[in-house]
Amino acid sequence: MSSAENVIGLYERHAGAWDRKRNHGGKLMERGWLDRFCGLVPPGGAVLDLGCGSGRPLASEMIARGFGVTGVDSSAAMIALCEARHPAHEWHVADMRGLDLGRRFDGILAWDSFFHLRREDQRAMFPVFARHAAAGSALMFTSGPSDGEALGSFEGEELYHSSLAPDEYRALLAAQGYEVEAHLAEDPDCGGHTVWLARQS
């Protein structure tokens, strides 16, 4: 099995370890970007969190701000943690690549998840985003800074990442009616994340 095909299984096997490490000791390094994203979502709006992991810190933070969160993750172990933490919200074990919930959302988040997909699968995700987007919906995702593939590691296993070129992301967003609100490569104030924030025009 290739490292790209192993991503789902890796997170399933190590859900507990990921949950412990992901909380950053209570520090929310994503706060600045999350503030910008939430500023584009109406109060009490519906947010779709793609690759929601264990529901913390980002889904938990959005719930604390009064948003209705629907979380999707391929790992059943991760979703079980979400359900235990936030039973009043909606959680689905599903692969984002084939997602069709039959609903539209005021905001869509794919933070530290979308970039685990192969590049061809990333290209195919933009119609999925649009299919779930209400008019004026915000979209925020993380990518790499340039076209290519990279291997990290987690709990001793290879962890696959890939990225398209920035110009291709812009073209894919525009083709689905999105306008880029903000983009920063390797943000030093956010752990070196490359972030895209867009909005349906």
Rank of each mutant, 00 (worst) to 15 (best):
M1K: 12
M1D: 13
S3E: 08
S3N: 11
A4M: 07
E5K: 09
E5S: 13
N6V: 02
G9E: 13
Y11H: 08
H14R: 14
G16P: 04
D19Q: 09
R20K: 14
K21C: 08
K21S: 14
K21R: 15
N23V: 15
K27Y: 12
R31I: 14
R31L: 15
W33V: 05
G39Y: 05
L40C: 09
V41P: 00
G44Y: 10
G45C: 13
C52H: 04
G55I: 02
R56S: 14
E61L: 05
M62E: 03
I63L: 09
A64Y: 07
G71P: 00
V72C: 06
V72G: 00
D73Q: 05
D73N: 11
A77R: 09
M78C: 09
I79Y: 02
L81T: 01
C82H: 00
C82V: 04
E83V: 10
A84K: 14
A84Y: 07
R85W: 09
P87E: 11
A88Q: 15
H89G: 03
W91N: 00
W91R: 04
W91L: 04
D95R: 09
M96T: 01
G102E: 10
W111A: 03
D112M: 08
F115D: 02
L117G: 03
R119F: 08
E120T: 14
D121H: 11
F126P: 01
F126Y: 13
F129Q: 00
A130H: 08
R131D: 10
A133I: 02
A135V: 13
A135G: 11
A138G: 06
L139F: 07
M140I: 11
T142Q: 05
P145I: 06
S146K: 15
D147L: 11
G148N: 09
A150N: 13
A150V: 13
G152K: 12
E157I: 10
Y160W: 11
Y160L: 04
D167Q: 15
D167N: 13
Y169T: 07
V180W: 07
E181Y: 04
E181A: 10
H183P: 05
L184V: 15
A185E: 11
E186S: 13
P188S: 10
G191T: 11
H193N: 15
T194I: 09
W196L: 01
W196V: 02
A198T: 06
A198P: 05
R199K: 15
